[in-house]
Design a protein around this nucleic acid. Sequence first.
DNA 1: TTGTAAGCGTTATCAA
DNA 2: TTGATAACGCTTACAA
Lengths: 338, 338
Amino acid sequence: MIAKTKRCTLNDIAELSGVSKTTVSMVLNGRADEFRIKEETRQKILQIAEKNHYRANIYAKALQAQRTNTIGLVIPDFSNFGFAQTSQMLERLCRNHGLQLLISCSDEEPHLEAKAIENLLERQIDILITTPVCQKRKHYPYLNTIPTIQLDRFIADAPQIPYIITDDKSAVAAMVAQMINKYQLKEFYYLGGLLQLTPSEARLQGFKCGLQQAGLALQNDWISHRDYHSESGYIMMQQLLQRLGRLPQAIFVASYGLLVGVLRFLNEHQLLDQLSSQQLHLATFDDYELLNCLPFKIHSIRQDHEKIANALFQAILSLLEQKPIANQIIPAHLCWRD
Amino acid sequence: MIAKTKRCTLNDIAELSGVSKTTVSMVLNGRADEFRIKEETRQKILQIAEKNHYRANIYAKALQAQRTNTIGLVIPDFSNFGFAQTSQMLERLCRNHGLQLLISCSDEEPHLEAKAIENLLERQIDILITTPVCQKRKHYPYLNTIPTIQLDRFIADAPQIPYIITDDKSAVAAMVAQMINKYQLKEFYYLGGLLQLTPSEARLQGFKCGLQQAGLALQNDWISHRDYHSESGYIMMQQLLQRLGRLPQAIFVASYGLLVGVLRFLNEHQLLDQLSSQQLHLATFDDYELLNCLPFKIHSIRQDHEKIANALFQAILSLLEQKPIANQIIPAHLCWRD
DNA sequence: TTGTAAGCGTTATCAA
DNA sequence: TTGATAACGCTTACAA
C-alpha cells in the first residue's frame, strides 16, 4: 500500500454500483445464488469490480473471520536442497488453495528459531510446521497454543505432536546390507551428524540394522559422529585415515554436506581414484544430480520430497478442519550407481 | 487461529487492568513516556500483558494503519542455491526489522508468476521484489500500483523500475580473457541459457568482451544457446562434440545447471579425464562447494548473495520511506582453481 | 431481492 | 494522566 492512489474497497464498489456493501460482498464471494441477487445487479457489480481491479482486503477479512488462512513454516536452512524442494512444493499447494505459507529459517540456532516462531505466532498463523532445533518440549512453550506439525524431526518428549518424516532407518539398513553382500565387505565405517537429532539417530540405527541383516559384526571404532557441516566430513575422514593408516573398504556418510567434506579431503590427498577403482565404496544419505556426473560411483538415498510436501498439505487440511492427524513415515528411494 | 482457547486481546488486558484500551495500547507500544502514563499503571499493564502472553493482532493493526509491513518476493526457483541464499538472508533482515517477507515461486512460468504476484497483491504487500519471467512491461500491468524492485533480471522496456543485479558481464569478461592468456587458447566455446533473459545476454556479452580483450577473434560456431536445464547442457555438449569430432580447447558454461549436464555427458562418454589432464579447460558461472571436491579444475564465478540481500534490504527501507532508489550492479568474484 | 448495523482488534483524535 | 469514540474493510444476522 504505502501512500499512492488509495485502494478501492467494498464500499467504493457499493457506491459505484448504487447498492449496499452487503450485496456487493455476497456477489463477490460467489454467494449470489444463495441470496438470489438479481442477475442484473450481479452483472453490474461484477463489471464494476473488474473494471476497478477490486481486491478484497484480506486483513479486514482475517480480522472478522478470526482466522488468517496462513501457515507458518520454520526450516533450518533454505539452501538445503531437500528443505527447499519441500518448501517450494508446499508453497505451491498452499497458494493454490488460498493459504499463505510463511517461510522462516532457524539456521539450527535455538534463539533464532524462537524468534522466528514468535514472529509467526504474532502473525496469527493457523498452523505451525516446524523442524525443531531443540530436543526438549520445554523449549517450545507455545505447543498447546497452536496446532503443530513436526517436519523431518521430532521432539522426543512430545508424543502428542504429530510428525512427518522420512523412513531413514529402513533405507539405510537396506542399502548397507545390500552393499555388504554385493561387495563382500568385511568392514563398514559410518560418518554421522549431530546424534541428538532424530534423523541422525534413525540413520545410525539403520546402519546397525544393515550390518546385522548382512551378518557383519559391528566394531567399536566404525562409527564417528560430529555435526553436519562439510568441515566435519573432512575432519572425520582425516581422523579415520590417520587411525587406520589406510583407506577403509566402505563408508556410509549420513548427509550430503558431510559427503562434500569427505570428497574434499580425498581430493586434496589424491585419493579420489581409489573411489573409481572401487577400492573404497562410498554411499550417502541425500541425493544430488551431480552424483551422476562424477567419474566414480557413490550410491545415495533420495528422500521423497514430493510425498513429504503432499503429506504436509493433507495434514494441514485436516488440522484446518479440526481433524486429528497421524504421524507419517515416508519411504526413501535407494539410488544405485554401478 | 482455528477455534482453541480464544486469544487474548487489548480489550481483555484493559479489563483485567481496570483501565481503558487506549492506555493499554499506549503502554504496550512503548509510548508510555510520551503520554505520561503513571509508572504504577504502566507496570500493572505490562505485568498483566506478560502473564497472559498478550500478542497484538497484526491484522487489526494493518487494517487501521493502512500498511502491512509485508514484502513480497517472487523468485523462479527455491532450489536454486543463489536465490535460496538471497531469500534466506533477506528473510532474516526483514524479520529483524519487523517486516514479513512472503516468498513465492514462479517456476519460470508466466502464468504461475502472474498467480503468485496476484496473490501477493491481494495480501497488500507494501513492496514487491520480483525476478521477472517475461520480457515486456505489458505482462506486468500492476507495475504502477506498487513499488517494485527487480532482482537478478529486468524488463527491457521499463526503465523506471529499479533493479539489483550481479555484474555478470565484467566477471565473465575478466575470467575469459585471463583464461585465454593463461592457457594460450586458440578457441573458446560458450554454452548459454535462454537468451531473452538479461543475465544471459550480459554473460554472453561478457564472453565476447573477454575474447576481444585477449585478442581472440570470435568464430560463428563458438556460441550455443538453449534453456537453463541441465539436460540442455548435456545436449549442447553432445552437439558440440559431434560438430567438432573432438573436444574443444575451452568452454565457458553460463550456469551451474548447464554445467551439471555437461559433466554428465563427459562422464557418460569417459571424457572426464581430459579435464584432469587440462586438455579441456572448463569454467562456469555460479559457484558451488562441490567444485572444490572434484579431481579436475573448473573455474567459477561466485555471485555475492550477501551483498545482493543487503542491497535489497536497503532498497526496501528507502522505498518504505518513499525515497527513490537507484539501480545496483553488484560485482561478482572469480574463483580460480589451479 | 436488498439494506442496516454490529463487530472483529487496533490506533488516533479529542476530550476530560 | 486517562478515557470515549470513530475508523480501518469486511462479513453476517436480521430487517425490510
